[in-house]
């Protein structure tokens, strides 16, 4: 063709990870929670992203097969939600809130500082694969703006001057609370 068009006729050439058998089993473990298999899609995508770091083409195709839907159904859902990455992301994702309360309390300076310290822009990843950066709509911690979330951990009332210190702390994404491991199923003794 004489002009540029995105190719959907041929399968993508870039490599992307497959679902491992344990991961598939984990996904299947959610089947009895919902009356349809499709409803397991969003939990499954979370599990895939936890495992692979993102949701690649191959994973989309394989989860479609597992849930008996079309790959395009998966593509559709994945692309709708801002938390799913379709390209590899870093070990830790820094989510900078930019909604009104944080914004008025200086969120843009916090974000700029993150960009400066990490040397990356929105939806980019540091060369060492450690950090990715994204902006967030309201993190629901407006009483403590501006906020940053690093993976699961919320950092409240962030002063731009402290951003470097936060990012240099290895434990900046660690939650110190009892946890029910996400999607490992309920840790119940009875059902």
């Amino acid at each position: 063709m004489a002009w540029k068009a995105i190719d959907r006729v041929n399968a993508p050439t870039e490599e992307s990870p497959s679902l491992s058998e344990p991961l598939k089993e984990k996904i299947r473990g959610f089947f009895d929670r919902y009356p349809t298999k499709r409803a397991v899609l969003i939990p499954a995508l979370h599990m895939i992203q936890d495992d692979h770091g993102y949701v690649g083409w191959k994973a989309m195709e394989e989860v479609a097969e597992l849930l008996e839907i079309t790959p395009s159904d998966v593509f559709d859902t994945v692309s709708f939600y801002s938390h799913f990455w379709t390209h590899p992301k870093g070990e830790k994702v820094v989510m900078a809130c930019r909604s009104i309360s944080c914004d008025l309390l200086g969120a843009d300076r916090v974000l700029d500082e993150c960009k400066k310290v990490l040397g990356i822009g929105d939806h980019e990843t540091t060369p060492d694969g450690k950090y990715s950066l994204m902006t967030e709509e309201c993190l629901a911690a407006c009483d403590h703006g501006p906020c940053l979330m690093i993976n699961e951990k919320m950092h409240k009332c962030v002063d731009p001057a402290n951003v470097r210190k936060i990012l240099e702390d290895d434990a900046n994404d660690k939650l110190d609370i009892p946890r029910s491991n996400l999607y490992d199923g309920a840790n119940r003794t009875s059902a």
């Binding site: 041929n10 993508p12 083409w57 195709e61 395009s72 159904d73 593509f75 559709d76």
Partner: peptide, 24 residues
Amino acid sequence: GTGELCITNRGSKAEIDAFPGKPL
């Protein structure tokens, strides 16, 4: 009944698309 096409993204960035390698 083949479902090749889908909508991707949201808001004013929403587009019609097909899964690569599973064309219309």
